[in-house]
């Protein structure tokens, strides 16, 4: 996946975004026209739920979003490079993780959540009609609220039994 013959160096651009410099180690080998410096690239998780730290697609930050490379495992990069990518990923994939359910009330097709997340206390509303609670696995839930914000429950069994009962409606 990751082309051994290209070199990808990340930097923070002047505008505060993730930038990357793509150069070929072997002149004849790099994908034509993609070598160069990009002031803005986006890190895209190919497997955001099942493998968030691996298979990161680096794409040009414009509309076409052309792919420059796929990093199989960011742990292979140097720490400062990793940090740059992590920051971008954190921003791109803002998704609070729900640690504690304070209350869930359902009324007329909407459910009102009051939860504690790793980013703080949040209240949000979801539409009960759609598929707004997706089971990523037997124990993992993805919740999308009416404003398209996303929340995650990593492991429903880690919640207390009473919290799980509140969630029963969605399982």
């Amino acid at each position: 996946m990751e082309d051994k013959n290209i070199n990808l160096n990340f930097f923070e651009s002047e505008g505060g975004f993730l930038g990357a410099k793509l150069e070929s180690r072997d002149a004849g080998h790099a994908p034509e026209g993609s070598c160069g410096t990009y002031d803005r690239v986006r890190a895209v998780r190919l497997f955001p739920f099942t493998d968030p730290a691996k298979y990161i697609s680096i794409r040009v930050g414009n509309e076409t979003g052309e792919e420059l490379a796929v990093i199989r495992d960011i742990a292979q990069l140097s720490p400062d490079q990793q940090e740059l990518i992590r920051r971008d990923l954190e921003l791109n994939y803002f998704m609070p993780v729900i640690n504690k359910i304070i209350s869930i009330k359902d009324e007329y097709g909407y459910a009102y959540f009051h939860v504690m997340t790793d980013k703080g206390e949040v209240k949000f509303t979801i539409n009960m009609g759609g598929n707004n609670v997706t089971k990523l696995s037997e124990t993992r839930l993805l919740i999308t609220d009416i404003n398209e914000n996303r929340f995650e429950i990593r492991d429903i069994h880690a919640l207390t039994p009473s919290e799980q009962r509140k969630l029963d409606l969605f399982l």
Binding site: V44, P48, G65, L136
Partner: peptide, 8 residues
């Protein structure tokens, strides 16, 4: 890749 959840 363009979908928020990618291959997931």
């Amino acid at each position: 890749s363009a979908m928020p959840d990618g291959y997931d």
